[in-house]
Design a protein around this nucleic acid. Sequence first.
DNA 1: CTGCATCCTAAATGATACTG
DNA 2: CAGTATCATTTAGGATGCAG
Lengths: 129, 129
Amino acid sequence: MFPGPPAACQEHGGKGRFVRSVLERIGDKWSLMIIGSLHQGPLRFSALQQAIGGISQRMLTLNLRHLERDGLISRTVYAEVPPRVEYELTELGHSLLVPVLDLVNWAADHSDRIETQREAYDAALEGES
Amino acid sequence: MFPGPPAACQEHGGKGRFVRSVLERIGDKWSLMIIGSLHQGPLRFSALQQAIGGISQRMLTLNLRHLERDGLISRTVYAEVPPRVEYELTELGHSLLVPVLDLVNWAADHSDRIETQREAYDAALEGES
DNA sequence: CTGCATCCTAAATGATACTG
DNA sequence: CAGTATCATTTAGGATGCAG
């Protein structure tokens, strides 16, 4: 399943085979934000789309299926009109929520510093050319 | 810079504007693994490529530039023959390392359970069709 | 060894229209 | 409302060749 011959994350014993695919899922463009958006409880499809902002209906659907496949979120359909579908973190998803929120908080705490770094980097490039 | 009109991660005050771009960088397919691979100290280009496994030269170069631009890693060129280039986490990168390693450890701890979930999900789909 | 440039393919994503 | 399906576009990614 993994192309490279050497271990992906050798620091975690021999079972690192799947660690990589898990990281790839977590490292999806939207997964972190989806999981983070569900931290306070279940949300329905449209609410989730609003909370994330900028994600298309198609991408949200696809990513939700992926996360559901991995057992990180659950999908509940209510037989009503109009139909209502709620997504919620599973127990497994909640355990992932802890490190994910740490990461989101880190991003929030350091976002302006990174912004500064980017500007400095870009400015230095202009000076070279 | 962000398409969606509503706040990206509203749970973090008004400065959530850049949080999203930071999360997108962190959520890059390779960034997590690159940062994780540097946790024990500096690595040169080829060593990094081996440690990650499966990443092409081009992608590694590009991702390293991105991380360098964000001030997360530093690039040091040694004037030798053959040339040697070492990449190392900056102070900012080290602070990110903490939550990143938590995430990697989570992935390692739960990879087999997720693998099971995936198989169950796929099996259930076959039963439907 | 490092890494940039180029070409080319595969995958991700957006827009739109349509269905239960 | 919550999708699915399709098409068109963009982007990521790999392969190769060349340069410092």
